[in-house]
């Protein structure tokens, strides 16, 4: 960490707006968390007061926001060194690190406490574990130590459907964990595709992301490997009484697309050229050499949204699962 970045991180926030605090909660990530949690809650098929269901989802969203704020506060030093993140509220000096951490703690306590009141102890415990896993296990222990950081840390992002299911039913059956498994296996190819074209950032900050430690070629092969596991795994809800015919079709087409893009990425040289982004904020606007990585990164978001949205709509419309279920 440079002296300049230390000064920037420590600078007092004189003009922080509520939008800066909102940004600490990573609203875009939160939207995916909410979608998967709602899907878990609806798939449980348990009669629940709509108000309590909405409060439970709010708690999951705020829990995700709280853990994100803790992550932003703790990682402000390395965020200041990376082009992609140096404009964030804490490294840019608009919010003090301690304030970000305080927001994270308050939101975490609030979300777990209210979840206990509105739903049940199991859902609250799972939510507390999710926050702890992201803010402490991933952010503090794994991220700066091992290239498997986002593989193991992906558990935190995978748990919201289980929390949602538990909030509705008071139980966490295998079907809920299957939804979590899909997100868990989806996480490495998603993040590694992004890190292939932001690896200079990670190297500069000393974060051992896979392209930094194992190289681009190995990362591309591993992405393809995870894609080959994810595609069939995405089909399995249709075989355990969760997904219907439309889900099966979406998962099949989506899975084939994922593998095709993973194959194209594996055959490319993405991650081997220097800085490939057009500007700091250009997450999708990359130069030619990185387009296969960019394409898989963008597609992976669409894929997960499509799977969970289809599952959610099928259950809301009362479309029965396939008779393939045992």
């Amino acid at each position: 960490m440079t002296e300049q970045s230390v000064i920037e991180v420590a600078r007092a926030p004189m003009a922080a707006t509520w939008r800066d605090y909102l940004s600490l909660m990573k609203p875009r990530v939160m939207s995916l968390v909410v979608l998967t949690a709602v899907t878990g809650l609806v798939c449980a098929h348990v009669a629940m007061s709509p108000v309590l269901a909405a409060v439970a989802i709010l708690c999951i969203a705020l829990g995700a926001g709280g853990s994100a704020a803790l992550n932003m506060g703790y990682d402000a030093d390395i965020d200041a060194l990376m082009r992609r993140t140096r404009g964030r509220a804490v490294p840019a000096g608009r919010v003090q690190r301690a304030d970000a951490m305080a927001l994270g703690v308050v939101l975490s306590l609030f979300s777990v406490g209210i979840m206990t009141l509105a739903a049940n102890v199991l859902a609250a415990t799972l939510l507390a574990f999710t926050i702890f896993f992201y803010a402490v296990v991933y952010t503090r222990w794994l991220k700066r130590r091992t290239a498997q950081n986002i593989v193991i840390g992906g558990l935190a992002g995978a748990l919201p459907p289980v929390v949602g299911w538990a909030a509705a039913s008071g139980a966490a059956p295998l079907q809920a964990w299957l939804l979590a498994a899909i997100i868990f296996v989806w996480t490495p190819p998603h993040f590694w595709a992004l890190s292939l074209y932001t690896s200079e950032d990670y190297a500069r900050a000393g974060v051992p992301m896979m392209p930094v430690t194992a190289g681009a070629a190995s990362t591309r092969r591993q992405i393809l490997g995870y894609s080959l596991v994810l595609a069939p795994l995405g089909l399995t809800p249709a075989f355990v009484g969760l997904g219907g015919a439309v889900y099966l079709a979406v998962a099949a087409v989506g899975g084939i697309g994922f593998v095709v893009l993973g194959w194209r990425l594996a055959r490319s040289r993405a991650g081997e050229s220097g800085e490939v982004r057009v500007s700091d904020d250009a997450l999708y606007d990359v130069r030619a050499g990185a387009k296969t990585a960019r394409n898989l990164f963008a597609y992976s978001i669409l894929y997960l949204f499509a799977l969970f949205t289809t599952l959610l709509v099928e259950h809301l419309l009362g479309v029965g699962p396939l008779s393939l279920a045992g």
Binding site: S49, V51, L52, V55, L58, I114, L117, A118
Partner: peptide, 9 residues
């Protein structure tokens, strides 16, 4: 929120 949860429960 706490008030509404209490009422519903």
């Amino acid at each position: 929120i706490v008030f509404v949860i209490t009422l519903i429960k």
